[in-house]
């Protein structure tokens, strides 16, 4: 999205401080610290307190954690999504270009945070679950690794993913009136990994099997994981509009109004229109 032309501009420009990394730094930094602490907890209490589901220690160290995190996640999801909805912009058709550009930056940081959380859940903690299962015999669906992977890391990325989608739908004209196919896939498909845990756990309970990680029982996770590829289409939708806004705000080039974008969002992702703006 580099710009090469310089022309006069009469449009209000946002200050550069509006494009700060601070909020994503805080969010991702907090998630990293949290993930490290969770790993420490697991190292301290998985083997020492988490091998016998019927023990009192298991109840307090692992089932207690499970119930606490489920409650916290439900409250956080409700609060974040609810707040985003209740504070939605009801006059999006009159959104100024500078404000729209700032909101795209906020959306970018939201998506970045979501992808970190998705990496932690789908990559790091999921293979960590392989480490655990191939080392010890399972005696419960709520084994220590699952308490962290399934019921903690997955809901966390779902909270951020859905949150980013709600942000886009409530604050950006492009996403206000019509669902974006790639964005819905990017958020919805990995989110379905969490319900798929039901299939997985039923299967492992019904057929007490060796832990073959490539077992067909696990392929639901695989299929839903493919949805991460839709980040490509999502950025392909967003980038032309951001480029048009940069061209408009800094170089005074013509741009579609928010009302036009809301009416026909498909027109805002036409790379040809975008290139015409840059000419």
């Amino acid at each position: 999205m580099a710009q090469t032309q310089t022309t006069a501009t009469a449009v209000a420009r946002p200050p550069l401080t509006a494009f700060s990394w601070k909020s994503a730094g805080i969010a991702i930094g907090a998630l990293i610290v949290f993930d490290v602490l969770i790993n420490v907890y697991e190292r301290l209490y998985a083997f020492s307190k988490g091998l016998d589901y019927t023990s009192a220690d298991y109840e307090s160290y692992w089932m207690g954690m499970l119930f606490a995190e489920l409650v916290l996640e439900a409250v956080t999801a409700g609060a974040l999504w609810g707040w985003l909805w209740m504070t939605r912009d009801r006059a999006l058709d009159r959104l100024s270009p500078a404000e729209e550009l700032k909101r795209y930056w906020a959306l970018g940081l939201f998506v970045l945070t979501y992808t970190y959380a998705a990496y932690a859940g789908a990559s790091y903690f999921t293979e960590q679950d392989g480490t655990w299962h191939q080392t010890v015999i399972r005696d419960t669906d709520f084994t220590p690794s699952h308490v962290i992977e399934f019921y903690q890391s997955y809901p966390i990325y779902i909270i951020f993913g859905v949150g980013s989608l709600v942000y886009a739908m409530t604050r950006l004209p492009q996403f206000a009136k019509a669902f974006s196919l790639p964005y819905v896939v990017l958020v919805g498909s990995p989110a379905m990994i969490f319900p798929n845990v039901g299939l997985n756990e039923f299967g492992h309970t019904r057929w007490f099997m060796e832990e073959l990680f490539v077992a067909p029982l696990h392929w639901g996770f695989v299929t839903f994981g493919w949805g991460a590829l839709a980040i490509l289409g999502t950025w392909l939708q967003i980038c032309p509009r951001v480029l048009a806004l940069v061209n408009h705000v800094y170089y005074g080039k013509p741009i579609q109004s928010p009302a036009e974008v809301m009416k026909d969002p498909q027109s805002s992702v036409n790379p040809a229109a975008c290139a015409a703006c840059a000419m």
């Binding site: 970018g108 998506v111 998705a118 789908a122 990995p190 980040i231």
Partner: peptide, 15 residues
């Protein structure tokens, strides 16, 4: 973000 998303999707697929 694309790099992180691809790690997430590709790694869960691969493993």
């Amino acid at each position: 973000s694309t790099f992180l998303a691809l790690i997430a999707g590709f790694h869960v697929h691969q493993m």
